[in-house]
Structure formats: structure tokens, C-alpha cells
Design a protein around this nucleic acid. Structure first.
Lengths: 348, 348
DNA sequence: GTGAAAGCGCTAACAC
DNA sequence: GTGTTAGCGCTTTCAC
């Protein structure tokens, strides 16, 4: 069906290896032969079969990436950042959307392994480390972004300092006069969720503010959990009056904001809001939402750099039994964008 | 390095084919043998090599998709819609971001072809149809979304009726009292850009409104072109007074809005705005932007359906020399979400 | 400078 | 029920 080396070789009465040499630009080919082969190659628009090449060379040049939701600006930007570097280096990014689903994530991990990706970038939503064994046992580099796994061995990761991110947001609220600050946290079995809550608690304590369990709600990062948590907080508002809320993800912030609006509360007069990873491309959201931002493109490009290094080390070590450099976690600094939503506390 | 059929077979003193039969769940295997093989397979965590399978079976189960920008909600949603159906049917979506760049698009088309994707979904930004020839000549199904190619032969496509989309938006502005309506159009060498301008012109005419060349600006869909066009329009506002503008893409709308804000104009009092594909997940943008919306998930799922059908037909036709059904363009209906930005004309 | 041959890991037709 | 064999398209070693 497709043209292949054999059909080209036969037509020219040369061997497959000669055609292969021409295709791969090797130099031990007679210039006249090369010209004849090249001509036919062009005429038939020959394109080498990468599947066969991959099998022979035991290398696919494919890197897999699995993220929970591609429609989130956070992940889309990371992918863009990684894709650029990877493409420049002759790799090919295969992207999968786990839809925040553990089963789907596992499924994709298996599929990508079957396809023999050379490395994996993983924003995991799973506590189950079993699917990872495949990769680890076969020495396939894995780089974690966003969430960290519950692994006993060391691993590579690129992410922000999540505790510091929370500290930044909470400290800002405090310096705006807020003391009763609620939090909508994420799942505590995920490191991101855990660290962000942790940063919140530590910052309150170091400012001499008591941590009130009633002001801590746990969502699951999905769209409606922010809404639900915010509703619960507001319903208890009388018992445990609070003037600000810190919401630890974009989707939950969206939900929380609509709950606040539904309850007829004004931001920031009735309730100040600080968010995490909130994206406002338009800059027209009113009130502007104060938010923690991550250097997403950089997370992507550093992840790509790390992968490329690991892959190089791997090739090298086979030949020279060189020691692989230690696994590392690259911690980037979060930023804080201050807008109106976190405005100073309303004094009654 | 990896476990393969051979190593498993050797250890059990059976043949490779027996192991293969067990792996593929064929029934002509002695139950006792099967058990022994299965045990070792599990012990070693054997995962079949899809690269080898693909080569042997001449089928990769991979579908490629190339879009101009994954960070646009429009494309992200389409991918989600397609991914779901494709995954359910045992296919695997490989996704590429051309970054609105013709060269990159071509590059990815070649790469995907080399990888032997079985079909391609293409939101093209290119006028050059040459890279397409590879696919067409080799009978690999291609489905176009968003933009249509300049091909002489017929092709498959799934998209909205873009002329109608513009008609919807412009008619709405007219019924709100606007008569002097500017447009920020897209590249006229792309069908989407052409059709949307076309719908604008026809709607004005059918309403007995004169089309004024000075009110037509051409952007390139990139972030800053909307800003530039809007600036130009506003600078000429005195000459050619207009009360509304229709911006034909999300990114250009973002640019136009910041130009409007910069010029200190109020929406909709000084200038009404209608957009295309504008996404506001938060619902908090003020003023709310009236926009054309597309059934993105449906575009994705219908595209996936079409591809699956084409692939089935292909398999079938080899065996039965069945006639392939005619290529088709599936035109979906655009929607209009009315918010404040398109408010009635301000009467002086 | 060129060709023959082996083999990457797998499947499937065929023989026993 | 099981094994042998050929071959998918390619690269590469080894002869010549």
C-alpha cells in the first residue's frame, strides 16, 4: 500500500540497503547511484515508516504526557512550554487527558507504555503507584508536575513550592486586615492539596491567628466542589464569622464565586477572595481576582529539559556504565497577583 | 531490556506462538499450558510491544489531531469531545499544537504520517495543500474542523455554518438599533474568515444597510491584531461613526476589548460589542460579552464518529470492494448568547 | 560502493 | 494443542 524501501530498490535494481543509505544520508554511496535513488524517492514521495524504524532502533522519540484536564489554562500552558523544547530536540509529545479520573490515568499509562514512549510527564490524580512500577522497573524516566506521588524511592519533579504559595496568599490577606480567613482546600491525599492547606495553617499560626477547623473545607478540585464548600461556609457564617476565603484551585474558585454571587455577597466588602491558578485572559472580570500564579511555561520547559537530560544519561550509561545523576525536585517560586477581590477588611 | 514473547517462551520451554496465543486470548490453547504462561506473564509484568504489533498488523490505532492553539477553549473542548469517543473505540489520540504556524503544521503532518496515524483531524492555518497529498494519495482519512482547505477534490469536514453565525450576531446588533456596525474580520484566505465576513455583508444588505469599507478591518486571529484593528477603527471614529463592532474570534476580541478600555470607551454605551467563540468560564466578565458559540463537544464527537466510520469502510472495502460513501461536510448550527455588551444603541 | 542476511517483537498460516 | 516459519519495513554488520 505505501511505498517502501523494497519497492524502490526493486524498481532500480539496487539493494534495499543502498536505498536505506540514501534515505539516511550516509556517505558511502556512489554519487550517481544516490542521484538515481533520490529521484525515485521524490517521484514516489517516499516517507520512511517510523513504526519499523522504532522497532529496529528500539527508540520511538515519543514522550507521553498525562494531565487531568486540558481545558485548564494551567495545563495547556505547561504543555505548550514542554512541547516547544521537546520538538526542537527531535522528540514528539503525545498528550492524554485523564479527565481527573484515576482509571483513565492508569489506562493511559498502560497505553503509553505499550507504545513505548521514552519518557512520561505526569500530573497524577492517583494515589495508586502500582502503574508507575512499569516505568520505574524498566528505567523509563518519569517527571511529575503539579502533584507528587506516594513513592518510597526518589523521583524527578518540577513544580512550585505549594506551601509558600499559600503563605503568600494568606499573608497578603492578613496584611489587608483579615484574621478570620476560611480555606477551600483540595484533597489531602494529594500533595498539592496537602501542602496548600499546610501553608495556610502555618501562616496563620506564625501570625498568632488561631486555626479554626470550621473554616476549613475540603473540595476535590472538580467544578462543583468549590460551589458546595462555599455554600457550606456561608451557611455557617453566623457561627464562625469570617471576612476572607482562600480557594486553592481555579475550578473550585469558579464554583465558589458563583456561590458567593448566588448568596448576594459583595466581593470584597462582604467577603474577600484570594485564589490559586486563576486565569483571566480578558482582564475584565469584576472584581479582579487576587490569585497565586505559577510560571507555567517554565514548568513545561524545565520538565522538557530534565527529560532530555535523563534520556541522554540513559544512552550514555549503557555504553559507559556511567552513574546517573540523582533524582531531583525542581521547586519554582509562586507569584501573587493582587487585584480588588482581596481588598482590605470592611470595618463595621 | 523489556520482557518479550521470546524470553517468556524460552523460560517455559514452549513456542513463541503459544505465548502469543495466551497473550491474545485465543482459544486453541491447553488450559494447563495457558495457566503456566499466564503466571509467568504476570510475574514479569509482561506488556506487549505495540510498535511490533503495529508493524505486523499494519495498523497503529493512532489518530492525529493538529490545532492552532491548545490554550483556546474552542480547540480544547473539541479535543475533549473527540478523545472520549475515540478512546471508547480503541483509538488513541495524538495531539499537536501548530502554534498558528504553517511550517509547524506541515512539520507535524509529516511526523504524524511517518508515525502512520490512521486518520488526521486538521484545523488548518495553511493555504498550502501539498502536505495533504501524502494523506489523500495514501487514502488516509482526513477530517477538517474550523477551517476548510483549498482542495479541488471533495473532503470530510465538521464545522458550523460560519456565514450564519455572523448573520446571527449582526442581525442581533441591528435589532438592537445599530446600523453603523464595524467588523474585525479574519484572514480572507481562510474559509472561516471569508465566510464570517460574507455573513456580515449579506446581513447588512438584506437589512438595507450600506456596507462601508471603512468599517471593515482585517486581523490575523492572533492576540494583538484585534487590538490594532480596534485602535484603527476608534481613531477613525469621527469620520465614520459606528455604534457597534462585531469581532470574529476570541483572541481578537480580547485585543479589541483592551483597546476599547484603553480609549476610555464604555461598552455598550459608547460602543456595542458582539464576539465569536468568546469563552467566559467565570461568568464574571463585566460587561458580559454577547457572543456566537459553537457546539464544540459535538464538533469533536461528530468528527470522531466520522473518522471511525471512514476507518471501518476502509477495512471493509479491501475485502469486499465496497463503494466508499461520499465525502461530507457536516454543518452544525451556531448559537448566540446575548449579554450586556451588545445593548441597545445609545441615542444622543 | 554495494548486496546479502540477520533481526527488532510480533502475528498467523500452515504443518504435524 | 503446539511448533515452525515467513514476513511486516527497516538498519546494520559483514562479505565481496
Amino acid at each position: 500500500m505505501f511505498f517502501n524501501l523494497k519497492s524502490i530498490a526493486k524498481e532500480l535494481n539496487v539493494s534495499v540497503s543502498t536505498v536505506s543509505r540514501v534515505v539516511n544520508n550516509k556517505d558511502n554511496v556512489n554519487e550517481e547511484t544516490r542521484a538515481r535513488v533520490l529521484e525515485l524517492l521524490n517521484k514516489y514521495n517516499y516517507v520512511p515508516n517510523e513504526v519499523a524504524r522504532s522497532l529496529k532502533n528500539q527508540t520511538t522519540n515519543m514522550i507521553g504526557i498525562i494531565v487531568p484536564d486540558i481545558t485548564e489554562g494551567f495545563f495547556a500552558q505547561i504543555i505548550k512550554g514542554a512541547d516547544q523544547i521537546l520538538t526542537e530536540n527531535g522528540y514528539f509529545l503525545i498528550f492524554c487527558d485523564s479527565n481527573e479520573c484515576e482509571i483513565k490515568e492508569k489506562h493511559y499509562m498502560e497505553l503509553l507504555f505499550q507504545k513505548r514512549v521514552e519518557a512520561l510527564v505526569l500530573a497524577t490524580v492517583s494515589k495508586n503507584t502500582k502503574p508507575l512500577r512499569m516505568y520505574i522497573d524498566n528505567d523509563i524516566p518519569v517527571v511529575f508536575i503539579d502533584n507528587l506521588p506516594n513513592l518510597s524511592e526518589s523521583y524527578d519533579a518540577v513544580l512550585i513550592n505549594n506551601a509558600k504559595a499559600s503563605a503568600l496568599a494568606v499573608q497578603h490577606l492578613i496584611s489587608n486586615g483579615h484574621e478570620r480567613i476560611a480555606i477551600i482546600a483540595g484533597s489531602q491525599s494529594e500533595t498539592t492539596g496537602y501542602e496548600r492547606l499546610n501553608g495556610y495553617i502555618r501562616t496563620l499560626k506564625s501570625n498568632g491567628i488561631e486555626v479554626d477547623e470550621k473554616l476549613i473545607k475540603y473540595g476535590n478540585y472538580k467544578d462543583d466542589s468549590g460551589y458546595r464548600c462555599m455554600k457550606e461556609l456561608i451557611q455557617n457564617k453566623r457561627d464562625c464569622d469570617f471576612t476572607a476565603v482562600y480557594v486553592t484551585s481555579e475550578k473550585m474558585t469558579l464554583g465558589a464565586l458563583s456561590a458567593i454571587r448566588e448568596e448576594g455577597l459583595c466581593i470584597p466588602e462582604d467577603l474577600a477572595v484570594a485564589a490559586c491558578d486563576f486565569h483571566d485572559k480578558s482582564g475584565l472580570i469584576v472584581p479582579g481576582i487576587t490569585t497565586i500564579v505559577q510560571p507555567e511555561r517554565e514548568i513545561g520547559s524545565l520538565t522538557a529539559d530534565l527529560i532530555i537530560r535523563r534520556l541522554k544519561e540513559k544512552k550514555f550509561s549503557v555504553k559507559e556504565t556511567e552513574q546517573e545523576t540523582a533524582k531531583q525536585t525542581i521547586l519554582l517560586e509562586p507569584g501573587l497577583i493582587i487585584k480588588e477581590s482581596s481588598g482590605t477588611v470592611y470595618k463595621r
